[in-house]
Nucleic acid binder design. Structure first.
Lengths: 155, 155
DNA sequence: TTTGTTGTTGATAATGATTACTAAAAATAC
DNA sequence: GTATTTTTAGTAATCATTATCAACAACAAA
């Protein structure tokens, strides 16, 4: 079982509604992103997809990641390390460990209510919000390392 | 009055403590960022600085923005439109209008307490956090425009 | 003041990520 | 089957950013 929560027929139907086809490349790109929780970069996805489709083009990976994100099959986010994709399109926050670089998903329970409060105070219409935490994860705290690791893979 | 909350002597002293000099270029770059609330990109800063120092190099602007941010005189943040700098180094959140592209500062009152809640729930050590809101600002709501504007200047 | 050391600059080349372009292949419609 | 549309692989082009380096400026020691 490679995909996590995307069934190919359902994806196919929705894609078709937008005039897109579920090609082999597109399906595998989607599967790769869904099969990892590493919040991968385009380059990471490219490397993984190439294991199964050695002749795939980097441009195809970019084109489809962009497209799939635009249609809502993936989430796309920019952070200091670059652009990353996320197969988890449900609302959630992120915790980035400054020691090991790992990005953890965090349930939104703790930040619930924030959006409504801002809307009231500012008079703006809030459509979306994003919370990013930075710190040291449990594993890195136990290892006791002090300073952020240099030269971590962007993966 | 060009600078907002950075007095040159104080900056000079702190820079010197790090072995950095407050050169003409460095001072003007700092002033330009502090003089706008537009959360400027490096290119924007370059254009502004060039008005006062026509022979300044783009590399000098990048070099100093990076450096000044590392020393804490500026804040640096990445968002979908690229890397931006912020003269306001006090804790605050951001609201990005998807219609006009403007980025507003938002006081952190509404998000207070969020960090502590996450720390307790996850067992991670939270050093920092960032909240970004997306929606339509007061001006754009009144104008009644529906969809996000294409091709807005990255300024 | 001269000399040495270190930090800084402007100019430009190099890099890395992303996008644009294009001819060929694949999928679908007729 | 043929025609039409979409997608692809391959590659060139673009854009932001960083690296390199020779010339220059600030400061310190002699």
């Amino acid at each position: 079982m490679i995909t996590k929560n995307t069934s190919a027929p359902a994806v196919d139907a929705t894609l078709r509604a937008w005039g897109l086809r579920l090609t082999r490349q597109r399906r595998i790109i989607l599967e790769v992103v869904h099969a990892t929780d590493a919040h991968p970069t385009a380059a990471f996805v490219y490397r993984r997809v190439r294991r199964r489709l050695p002749r795939v083009s980097l441009a195809t990976v970019y084109r489809n990641l962009r497209r799939l994100a635009a249609e809502g099959f993936l989430a796309e986010r920019a952070d200091p390390s670059g652009v990353r994709f996320d197969g988890n399109t449900a609302p959630h926050d992120h915790f980035t460990c400054v020691a090991c670089g790992r990005i953890y998903d965090v349930p939104t329970r703790a930040t619930r209510g924030v959006r409504a409060r801002i809307a009231v105070r500012s008079g703006f219409e809030v459509l979306n919000h994003r919370v990013e935490f930075y710190g040291r994860c449990g594993a890195c705290r136990r290892q006791g390392g002090r300073s952020p690791v240099k030269g971590q893979r962007r993966s």
